[in-house]
């Protein structure tokens, strides 16, 4: 039988569990979210957690390592919990030097995931499109990784005097900025959202599509290269690519 440890669904409960496992020198076969359904060869093990002290241990950890494990947590990797566990185990031993050990598979995997998540977030900082609806700006994203919090932090600085909502259609999460802070809501927590476009919106969208078409040099046409830099999976939420899908 393999031993599966469950956490409470959120990030801090995952870290709490991982610290406890490390403290007790337990090597879990897997770590999963609480809605996980074990198969016949797996059993769930419950661990009593030290809520008070566990997370404090991480305060001593270099910032870059904390950021790294957060990015892994945001990734779509199936084994991300176990990878964070492995990575933290080494991070306690090697501190910042942990990034040098590319010959250790779990560390190497984590470094690749960080890059993957970071690069998707960076792309969407550019590719995300807002529309002006009656009282606010509204954007839809469908990212592979759960990068909405990285984007919300970016736009909180950039569009600090506008009301906006970013909707992750894949995960059904809304990030809502109310001019002070960002709050995250599930669809069920909304009454209803009026998404009627502002009257001038079509004109501005038309201007953008005109610019997009015009700025390309026809003698240099290179659709393959365009797709390399701007993967097709993002097109459906990009105004200027609508007619190419």
């Amino acid at each position: 039988m393999s031993n599966i440890y469950l956490y409470n669904g959120d990030y801090s409960s995952l870290l709490n569990l991982i610290i406890e496992l490390l403290k007790q020198k337990i090597n879990p076969d897997n770590i999963k979210n609480c809605d996980y359904e074990p198969n016949l060869l797996e059993q769930i093990v419950n661990l009593k957690l030290d809520n008070k002290n566990n997370l404090k241990i991480l305060n001593k950890m270099p910032k870059i390592i904390l950021k790294s494990i957060y990015y892994v947590y945001l990734s779509n990797n199936e084994n991300k919990e176990l990878l964070i566990f492995e990575f933290l185990k080494y991070a306690f031993k090697y501190k910042e030097d942990v990034f040098r050990y590319r010959n250790i598979d779990s560390i190497n995997e984590v470094i690749k995931i960080i890059k993957y998540v970071g690069s998707e977030a960076h792309k969407l900082k550019g590719f995300l499109r807002f529309k002006q609806v009656k009282n606010f700006y509204y954007a839809v994203i469908e990212p592979t990784n759960n990068v909405i919090s990285i984007l919300a932090t970016h736009f909180k600085k950039r569009l600090s005097e506008e009301l906006w909502i970013i909707y992750d259609k894949k995960r059904n999460i809304y990030a809502l900025y109310d001019l002070k802070k960002v709050i995250y809501l599930k669809e069920s927590e909304f009454k209803s959202l009026n998404l009627d476009l502002d009257e001038n919106e079509k004109n501005i969208e038309e201007l953008w599509k005109t610019f997009f078409k015009t700025i390309s040099i026809k003698e240099r046409k290179n659709l393959k290269c365009q797709m390399n830099f701007m993967p097709k999976k993002y097109w459906k939420n990009m105004l200027e690519m609508e007619d190419r899908i």
Partner: peptide, 25 residues
Amino acid sequence: GLGNVAYSGICHSFANDGRCISLLK
């Protein structure tokens, strides 16, 4: 004010010639 700059630069789209669109040129 409105907006800020990103040290790394950000590409907002890629035109049909494969060139990055970052600024209203």
